[in-house]
Amino acid sequence: MTSRFVSSAILTAVIIFLIGPFFIIVAASLSAGDTLAFPPRGISLKWVLKVFQIESFQSSFLMSMGLAIFGTLTALAIGTPVSYALARYKLPFGETIRTAVSAPIIVPGIIVGLALLRYLVIPFGFNLTLALFLAHTALVLPYAVRVVSASMNNLRSDIEEAAVLLGCTRFGAFVRTVLPNIRGGILAAFILGFVTSFNQVPVSLFLSGPGVRTLPVDMLAYLETTYDPSVAALSALLAFMSIGIVFLAERFLGFSRYV
């Protein structure tokens, strides 16, 4: 049937457009040559190996990892209570608070980074890494609140009341009845936050200095001077890492339910 053929053609074209470039990167990174080119001249793992040897990549990788993990954990630590409060109570200034914690999504990251640099780091000598950490936590906070809120809204409040009537304290009721049921949502929020933070560039642009750099920013800087396939290799590795995490999350969690 022609319409099925047309349909397949369109979809194939779109998929190639969207994902094709990624495969090109993977192929380019396996090149045996010295410059970035496709098709690659020969196959070799040398660029992939080189990535692990570049010192600045090592330290910026650790920085990005640390920011992603601790930033997301912090965002969840303050985001879960606020989601709970928004879902269960009639919070005074509720809408204002909801807007405030969701606002970072609306403001372009680069502005947040710049503002923090100018008003926190420079005037007060605020530690740059700490400022980065705050910026990444702020970045992830809206995602944490949104995903945990979605989980909370699917849970009735009467199971908490039932637990209290059976003898639990308020906090005990939360821990025993709410947490086990939003566990999936929290995990999904963590993964979403982690990936968002790790891949984020603009927020971290201004908040870099000697020894303080996130990996994507480092890659960008590297690109300005060197044109070899190592960045391609690194991009490919990171992409596999991100995809791997999300794939596992979907497999064991049904991740897509929460987002």
Partner: peptide
């Protein structure tokens, strides 16, 4: 693709 870093996704176009 949304899960892959924008740096990686954009960088590919240099090659192309």
């Amino acid at each position: 693709p949304l899960m892959i870093s924008p740096v990686a996704r954009t960088y590919a176009w240099i090659v192309i």
